[in-house]
Design a protein around this nucleic acid. Structure first.
Lengths: 146, 146
DNA sequence: AAATAGATGTATATAAAATACATGTTATTG
DNA sequence: CAATAACATGTATTTTATATACATCTATTT
């Protein structure tokens, strides 16, 4: 059981923006920081903007920023808006489902309850909660003795 | 977010065994009933036997049966024993993790709590609970008027 | 011994996800 | 108003995970 890297990257973008003093960043800056594919990030950022989780600005001095304060963005909502589906088992996909137990099987509602519980926990936290203890740039210890 | 079909099939095997009066079945019987790949089921069944969730018997009149009563097999345990991993995000995989936020990021513990909540719900149910209302063979309504 | 059924390992196919590439659009700045 | 910076968008390719197929072995029963 895992979330897609797409969702992972989406969360990291928001965390980075929350960490930065000015709250702004470009895709290139993020790709460099996380050492991940710039091209992939382009799509992640585009989706975050479509979902109104961030604001983007094209052109020179453009970039992105959080659409609202980090403490008002629930982790659960981010996951709901970025994860492609929550087809926990085949029976959750009405199109491809071929299980002969449907619709009498109780497993589906059990799995659904578990999925709800998963997202409910994430709803108890915001991007701000994820950031505690993090800073974009490491503290300046360059003058400290090795 | 989804479980693998492997886990889905594992659950279906246990549900089928729980449904049957004699509690016994062969791989071929299951593959026919669910209309799924016999070859794939072979691996599912083998794993279920290794995890001591079912007992298998080779040879003529062989087959499988539940290792213990259906009401003593938690859905959560089945999922834990069949799902290949619970790497909710990249940072859960110590081998491949390259996220620069590790280990200061709080997201990992938030996602872990959600994963625990997911499994905890499944621990509240057994294979017997999943079966309620199910029978292997449809009730005989052949004499009823259309 | 023959037939049945699971055990096991390897190989292939499929599907999903991630990544790369090409080009377009918008905004700023000098 | 031209040059540049940065996001937008669609398509193609690569990679990985998962599912499926195949071949052969071992065990059990009759």
């Amino acid at each position: 059981m895992q979330l897609t890297q797409y969702t992972d990257y989406s969360l990291r973008v928001l965390v980075y923006l929350g960490m930065k003093n000015d709250g702004r960043a470009t895709i290139t800056e993020l790709a460099d920081y996380y050492q991940i594919s710039r091209n992939h990030l382009v799509k992640v950022v585009h989706n975050l903007a479509q979902q109104q989780l961030i604001l983007t600005q094209r052109g020179k001095n453009g970039g992105m920023s959080l659409a609202r304060p980090a403490n008002q963005i629930k982790v659960g909502d981010v996951v709901r808006l970025t994860e492609p589906n929550f087809h926990i088992a085949e029976c959750f996909n009405n199109v491809s489902n071929k299980c002969v137990l449907t619709p009498n099987c109780r497993l589906k509602s059990i799995l659904y309850q578990a999925n709800v519980a998963f997202l409910t926990i994430l709803d108890n936290y915001t991007i701000a909660d994820s950031i505690v203890g993090l800073t974009v740039f490491k503290p300046d210890n360059s003058h400290a003795q090795g």
